[in-house]
Design a protein around this nucleic acid. Structure first.
Length: 269
DNA sequence: ATGACAACCTGTGGGC
DNA sequence: TGCCCACAGGTTGTCA
């Protein structure tokens, strides 16, 4: 489910409901996530007050007066605000009960997400991440420099979190189409000029998706339970076999690194 | 260092 | 209707 725009949507959605709120208690129904949920999570969090919400890559950083809760939504996770007495459904793994009768509820069927507790501002999982795609540091020049002598296909290159964070399968497909670059082209064989276009397209597609509240596939909802509306403007993702919106050529699907890639062989070289 | 690939886990949809 | 397989938004770890 969540790529960067969905995580950002979640971050913005829950912020007004948790900031300045104190944690009354924590209920962990299932601690077996991508990494085990800290056994003392309840002890750490109970009594803490949320002071700020931030995002780094696809990690949510929920800062309290005692430390920072770092949450990843994995492939199928979601965080929602709801009344703490709402019955827990299957796969509702964690509740963070707040002092106003509401709770922050984590739901994750595949359990690829994670909860970590940070005493300081750093964590090994954050140490070697590339720049944020919406930052000024991320540019065509940066991509060009990083890609010299790389033979990896350009799509897998921009999905590598050590190169740039937050570009998942949906938006990698979209940005490469917008930039007119064939996803299978070796990263080291893309010109500076074309990387300038690609960096712009990545910023544009992520920015647009955030503005639309994320892309709702299946059942993604933001922190307030409303769906995202970006799916209706996807250009290639999920449209294999349908006509290219630019030239009407039938869109092809290939597999790269075990992931689905959809492209227009006429528009993308 | 690089790149290919398996692994983690559950749900769903297509084909037969 | 039911069964089996392939695949799904992500990331880490291992191996050649």
């Amino acid at each position: 489910m969540p790529e960067l725009p969905e995580v950002e949507t979640t971050c913005r959605g829950i912020a007004p409901h948790i900031l300045s709120r104190q944690v009354d208690k924590v209920i962990v129904r299932e601690p077996r996530l991508r990494w085990p949920v800290p056994a003392n999570l309840s002890q750490l969090l109970t009594g803490a007050t949320f002071l700020a919400t931030n995002r780094r890559a696809k990690y949510l950083l929920l800062e309290t007066d005692r430390g920072t809760l770092m949450v990843h939504l994995g492939m199928s996770g979601s965080l929602r605000i709801m009344p703490s007495d709402a019955p827990a459904l299957f796969h509702d793994h964690i509740d963070i009960v707040l002092d106003d009768g509401q709770c922050l509820r984590y739901h994750d069927p595949r359990r690829f997400g994670s909860f970590h507790w940070l005493d300081s501002a750093s964590h090994p999982l954050l140490d070697h991440l590339g720049p944020e795609p919406l930052s000024a540091q991320f540019s065509g020049h940066y991509l060009y420099e990083q890609s010299r002598n790389r033979r990896i296909p350009v799509k897998q290159f921009v999905m590598d979190g050590k190169v740039v964070v937050g570009v998942g399968n949906i938006y990698a497909n979209e940005a490469l189409f917008m930039a007119g670059i064939h996803p299978g082209r070796a990263a080291g064989r893309v010109s500076l000029r074309r990387y300038d276009g690609l960096a712009d397209c990545i910023k544009q597609v992520l920015g647009d998706a955030i503005a639309q509240g994320g892309t709702t596939l299946r059942d993604f909802v933001g922190g307030d339970g409303t769906p995202g509306y970006f799916a209706q403007q996807l250009r290639v993702y999920g449209r294999q076999g349908q006509p290219c919106r630019v030239c009407r050529t039938g869109l092809r699907e290939i597999r790269q690194g075990g992931r689905s890639t959809v492209l227009c062989v006429s528009c993308q070289r």
